[in-house]
Design a protein around this nucleic acid. Sequence first.
RNA 1: GGGCGGUUAGCUCAGUGGUAGAGCACUGGCCUUACACGCCGGCUGUCACAGGUUCGAAUCCUGUACCGCCCACCA
Length: 887
Amino acid sequence: MPELAKGFDHAQVDPKWYAFWEEIGAFRADPSSDRPRFSMVLPPPNVTGSLHIGHALNHTLPDIIVRWKRMQGFDVLWLPGTDHAGIATQNVVEKQLAQEGRTRHDLGREAFEARVWDWVRQSKQTITGQMRKLGESVDWSRERFTLDEQLSRAVRREFVTLYRDGLVYRDRYIVNWCPRCRTALSDLEVVHRETAGRLYYLRYPRVDGRGAVTVATTRPETMLGDTAVAVNPDDERYRHLVGVRLRLPVIGRELPVIADAFVDPAFGTGAVKVTPAHDPNDFAMGNRHSLPAVAVIDEDGRMTAQAGPYAGQDRFKARAALVADLERDGLIEKVEEHRHAVGHCERCGTVVEPLVSLQWWVKIAPLAAEAIRAVEEGRIRFVPENWTRTYYEWMTNIHDWCISRQLWWGHRIPAWYCDACGGMIVAEETPAACACGGALRQETDVLDTWFSSGLWPFSTLGWPDATEDLARYYPTSLLITGFDIIFFWVARMIMLGLRFAGDVPFRDVYITALVRDERGQKMSKSKGNVVDPLKIIDDIGADALRFTLASMASPGMDIALSEGRLTGYRQFINKIWNASRFLLMNLGGQTGRPAVPSFDSLALIHRWVLHRVSQVARDVGRALTDYRFDVAASLVYQFFWHEYADWYIEMVKPHLQADEPERGQAVAVLLEVHDRLLRLLHPFIPFVTEEIWQTMPGRAADGLARDGVHRSIALAAFPAYEPAWIDEEAAAAMALLQEVTTAIRTARAERGVPPSRRLTVLIEGADAGQARLLSEGGEYIRRLAGLERLEFAASVPRSPDTVRQVVRQLQIHIPLAGIVDREAEQQRIRKELARLEKQLAGIDARLANADFRERADPDVVQEAERQRGDLGLQHQKLERILAELVG
RNA sequence: GGGCGGUUAGCUCAGUGGUAGAGCACUGGCCUUACACGCCGGCUGUCACAGGUUCGAAUCCUGUACCGCCCACCA
């Protein structure tokens, strides 16, 4: 006799089934299969990271889709892996070293890399273990890491090809430099933060001694590197000064006054100091006017020898010292408070220093043009679609991509320099020697992490080799990821996929929302409001967390994770568990799966529940097709709890106590429906459904088996819509039984009739069909409403001891001798009448409106008339009851 | 400066043209042998504000207010 424990113990159950799925290869893709394919790649988490709540969402949603597709019979590949996350990982290990009082330079490059590898191997276990805890149905046999040899070869192929096509170049240019990480950063790795700063007005004396020009700057220390002062050519105030020479304070260098349209006459004084070495705008201006660039800040953020008296000082200390000196010399006209956006390093928070340096770049415009076209042509679809605009916006204003990083952890750039002849070789494999015979030295820089992540949808499938997997699973079907990496990752995959894999990397992109805390605040360590998904999993189980996330994943909306919702769905898991226990307790030795008897021979409740479960399966499928995880979850939640458990299970109980064949029929239908519900729920809550399903006798015979045996619900068929079970009549009949039952329950609850008191109820005014139905279904009503007897009558004598409820055109008489309070009854009926009158007034107003009758949809008019009729009838009956109560 | 989103029950959120819903919370009654993480009832809303379109607006349009996000080389 199969049995379930009293409570669902996720901590004990979940790992057991995950191990089982891996053991039977339930998630393994099969490229030789003749089934249609469905493929996704998992956005690779940072290898040294830990599963956070954002991952939980971004991994749960694709898992739902993938499990659903697998159950629908697709050959599914969901490919997992991790990202080496260059700068982030290097920083973590450098911090570890710092605690030992060492730097990476103490170790040297090789030893440092070895150290990072050690940490990575260990950390990878953590994150992949956490992914298993969440229940992710990925194909671990195809797990990849961006630094795998084959993926590294893909990166070299990418680099070399782009170089040969003239899309990768090396140039001295102004870059975002992090003095803490000591590396260049791409524009995307710089985060701008609104900061309270100061605007300093500095006086630059004219060389000819005829006064001075005042410039405004937020970064006075950069003045040491000024090589000009610029004004707008149309600015009347300054036109006469163009060409005049100024004397740079402290340094003494002569600066020309130049005219450049970039200068905004309305800002500051309308005269701008120009520091080509430390400001992107000034750099561009310097190029336009052939100005020298004087670097006064070095790669560590310290002042250079060019900074005169401040040489060697930290850039911020130098600022303070310089301001004090200028103040003393009367060269500061004024200082204003000024809020402005300051660039910070995304990874370490240090204020970014624009510096001129020699870096590798990707010429992006040609790649972007193709990527824009692919979306315009509809070859890629964003869901929700408003992200399309964001994508275009960025793609259109994109700048060349700085891909070199002065780090040690990452793909080393495959370029070699020959000191003998000054030549350079770019090649996929290490060249033996320079053509001139000189020794070669490899570029020390590594590539931006995203330069390799951008290949992920095809490098993981074997590219650049023409593998079976690549042919079968590329392009992938769908990508699900967060909006925060649309630019970093999604856009680059599109550009690189088109360029290298010959097609878009995915058809649909579902962009998930940001998970926030209960009050809608962004989670951050500093705010201390971070919700740890692993703790939630420990507390209430992965299933409850998954169901909550799915329920709250409405398109385009941020998710404020609420404790209340989590509790609610944990209780749902419990409900499922207990309903399953009930089922198993009532099998009475049933070991196989009995066939469902012919539909027409079934009792009403059985026809109704099959009708509904069929509809729900259809609706859930539709919702998932539209990526409406919230709608799908809510449909199955509502049905399971408030139709199947609240009504069907309650109504089926007497059938289970009955003799054969009634009992057998009930068992067969109950098993059928329960099985379907478990399968419907499985993509959302895989663990608990597997645990229950495994205890059920005679599992679904229509499943997909790997080896001819149905071993896991994960491989069973997703429930289908069954047209043969559609039975609107049964649905209508059930609705009436439910309404009558509820009316009686309400009447007794409102008057505090104890449940132990069995009542006799009379129903008046039923037509022939209703009378037949109500007497056939009388047993259910009696049971659910706590009645002794249920009787029908054409007319029932009035009695002051009787409470009357009106359901449609039926009057329900509930004799409650000694309980009925005439005053209270009158009040209740007046209240009910008032409610009806309000509704009637609304409908009457509409119906009285000729325009409404003319212009509204005829169906709507008809529906309004029907309602008007029903409500009018109810109103009449209640008025009569009231009159009798008063009289 | 540009772009996007939000404002619905005490809380977290669904609802995109026919007169408002869910979960939690609250509340009354029940340990009715699947479930007290439960069962049966009940309460709760000028759908941010102001105009407009429409027979009809939470839903479409315009504007306002507040909240939030993204992008941005105005010092």
